[in-house]
């Protein structure tokens, strides 16, 4: 098990390096270096430009040096002091900005994942065990719809219903009075009363996908010879289902973190925009439109790294659960 974790951690290194390169590339992609953009914007706003400050920034990011030196300066700053650079739009450090919003993003992703599991697990099992029953058809239909309806459409429709029939805005995560308040019980309750809409919106596609996968896997497993063999030894039906095929069909469930999480984080961007949630998504979008590239690139990198860590956790859980993954050399 330890060697498995060690191996898995080792595999992560090139992935992380690649992610940082991609994020750096995204920062560098817009034409001209960001300082030129920055100076142009400052002068357009009629603000005084401090030559000394420009020079220090130029030095700090190594803008006159070759691109790989710039990369190492940038990644060096991140690794040593968590210095992600400056947001020129907000005139604050990227780390501060992201730190403000990241916890809610993680909370939302975690809560959605949990909800997805809680819903998909029993429905998927029911659907497979009672194949072709009315409940199965219903679950399959919902599954198809959940996959076909873009989640921002669900968000828009919920917003529309809320606005039209209840005359209130259902967006955001907090009521206005708690927006800037410090954390207290009231704020937590207020959060709970708002969070279910983004949860539903974000969770639909994942739940639908999981139901389909669990159903298909379980149906496959139920037909495997070892199920018949176990039945032939007198293993009771319920135990047969839980102990044998379900254990194997559980695998994709555990590894969902691997594919649901990236999709979730992506979906979060668009849903957060529609529902105006105070998460990293809208921050990244506005950074991308205003070409505030250090902010945008850093957010892309941070959520990518978090996703990779999530995948790692799911892989370890999988190995713990499935001896084949743990003991077999690939």
């Amino acid at each position: 098990m330890l060697s498995f974790i060690a191996r898995r951690l080792l595999y992560m290194v090139p992935t992380l390096v690649l992610i940082s390169i991609v994020a750096f590339a995204i920062i560098q992609l817009p034409p001209g270096d960001f300082l030129t953009t920055f100076i142009a914007r400052m002068s357009a706003q009629g603000e005084a430009i401090d030559q000394a400050q420009i020079d220090s920034l130029r030095e700090r990011y190594g803008l006159d040096e070759p691109i790989y030196v710039q990369y190492f300066k940038w990644i060096g700053g991140i690794v040593t002091d968590l210095d992600f650079g400056q947001s020129f739009e907000w005139k604050r450090s990227v780390a501060d900005l992201v730190w403000d919003r990241l916890p809610l993003t993680v909370l939302l992703a975690g809560a959605t994942l949990t909800l997805t599991w809680i819903l998909a697990f029993p429905i998927g099992i029911y659907s497979a065990v009672k194949q072709y029953s009315i409940g199965d058809y219903l679950a399959t239909t919902i599954g198809y719809l959940g996959l076909a309806i873009p989640n921002f459409m669900i968000a828009l429709i919920l917003l529309y219903i809320g606005f039209r029939y209840f005359g209130q805005s259902v967006g955001g995560l907090f009521s206005p009075e708690y927006q800037d308040a410090a954390w207290n019980l009231g704020k937590v309750l207020d959060l709970l009363s708002h969070i279910w809409i983004p949860l539903i919106v974000l969770g639909t596609a994942g739940t639908a996908g999981l139901i389909r996968i669990l159903r298909a896997n379980l149906l496959d497993e139920l037909r495997k010879p070892y199920v018949v063999a176990a039945r032939a030894r007198g293993v009771p039906e319920r135990r047969l289902l839980v102990r044998y095929p379900l254990r194997v069909a559980m695998n994709p469930f555990i590894s969902t973190i691997g594919w649901v999480l990236p999709a979730l984080v992506g979906g979060e961007v668009i849903v957060a925009k529609v529902l105006s949630l105070p998460t990293t998504g809208p921050l990244m979008l506005s950074a991308l439109t205003s070409q505030d590239m250090y902010l945008a690139g850093s957010i892309i990198m941070i959520i990518s790294v978090l996703t990779v860590v999530g995948t790692l956790i799911s892989d370890i859980a999988l190995a713990w659960l499935d001896p084949r993954v743990r003991l077999r050399r690939h």
């Binding site: 992935t15 992610i19 991609v22 691997g258 594919w259 999480l261 990236p262 999709a263 984080v265 992506g266 979906g267 961007v269 668009i270 990244m284 957010i299 892309i300 959520i303 990518s304 996703t307 990779v308 995948t311």
Partner: peptide, 8 residues
């Protein structure tokens, strides 16, 4: 596969 597609 591991990086969130939409942000990328």
């Amino acid at each position: 596969m591991s990086i969130p597609t939409l942000p990328l």
